[in-house]
Design a protein around this nucleic acid. Structure first.
Lengths: 201, 201
DNA sequence: GCACCAAACGGACCACGGTCCGCTCTCCCC
DNA sequence: GGGGAGAGCGGACCGTGGTCCGTTTGGTGC
């Protein structure tokens, strides 16, 4: 027998987090941020973060899953800000400018972010076997793919998006800038010229 | 008092490896190759490799330094063959063809190699924080940089070489091919078009 | 052969990321 | 405010990569 059932308006809503859980999440994020800054990301163990947060190690992993996700979560505010700029910000980063200009601006923004948080971003993509499946990366890929498709409807936007994102990975930038000493200005210029070649105005 | 000293002709020569060490290196490589093939790279621990080789774990690490280097060493024969083709092989992979054609051929060769050994290459660049500092990668970068410089003396060959190598990383290809299901043909075509855009004939 | 020594060996040991499970505490409903 | 359910907690536990150091062994000079 079919019955009318009271359906929640948006069943996708999370079942609401308990107050202590929320508090702990924040304490863990604060502790991680502090320790990352103090003694460096790679010298900060998960145990140390748990201890600093005054919380059991299990709680850290329950909240964040693994080390890479925690690193990503620490940068969440910065990521949200970037995405906001992409969607609703001023041109050329936001809508309104031609795709090539927006892409160059995206590269600039990414390099700025990378310079500021290189070690944390490195950690985020190092530990996980699949940093490329993370939500932020997915958003970046969508964005770039969208710009490419508008500028060159003929091209393979999926592949080109990957090409345009690959040099912006923390690993590549770390090697270029830290290991081999290439300047950020050189990287920015290089990216702009790359975009100019790939997305003709 | 200054004395005439008998100088070795080439002090850079390694001081000759002991016979048992050489034998053990080979047994370890064989064991690793076998186990990687049998149960998969990610399911094979270093202890298991040591046991299979009939050797202490310390010996494995003494010979190969770390897991990533061992993975790389397993593929050494394949890498040597590739490098041989680049330096002395037939065109278009080897010398003689125009730079753009050689670069496309390089991409083809790399994709073939990636398809064949994806999991091992993934392991090699996953574990080490600095897979980009490995000897093979250095050679690849030199090669690509050299081709770029010949085709476009005006451009930033260093940056472009990185751009052209980044999409050929095991991590990117794994995500494209395994996770997202892009075909190898699509990747090859994409790379060829990328080269065409970046290195005008 | 022999004796010597550096190179090599091996497995106990360590630190770390991640899991598990029995106990606790919050929240909701009455 | 009392009680029941289940999310949340914490820290003991596990497997793994990597190190250390006392012991063994292969090469070499006599």
């Amino acid at each position: 027998m079919i019955q009318a059932v009271e359906l929640p308006v948006l069943p996708t809503t999370q079942p609401k987090e308990r107050a202590d859980a929320t508090a702990n999440r924040q304490r863990i994020l604060d502790a991680a941020t502090r320790l990352f800054a103090d003694r460096g990301v790679s010298c900060t163990s998960m145990d140390a973060i748990a201890a600093e947060a005054g919380v059991g190690k299990g709680t850290v992993f329950r909240r964040f899953g693994d080390r890479a996700s925690l690193a990503l979560a620490v940068l969440d505010a910065s990521e949200v800000e970037l995405q906001e700029s992409l969607i609703r910000g001023e041109p050329p980063l936001g809508p309104g400018a031609p795709p090539a200009a927006r892409l160059v601006a995206f590269g600039e923004a990414m390099y700025t972010r990378l310079a500021e948080h290189l070690d944390i971003l490195l950690e985020a993509e190092l530990s996980g076997a699949d940093a490329l499946r993370s939500a932020p990366h997915g958003v970046h890929r969508m964005h770039v793919r969208h710009l490419v498709q508008h500028a060159r409807p003929d091209a393979d936007a999926d592949y080109l998006a990957d090409v345009l994102l690959a040099p912006l990975s923390a690993r590549v930038v770390h090697d270029q800038h830290v290991v081999r000493g290439m300047s950020l200005a050189q990287l920015r210029t290089g990216y702009a010229e790359l975009v100019a070649r790939l997305l003709p105005a």
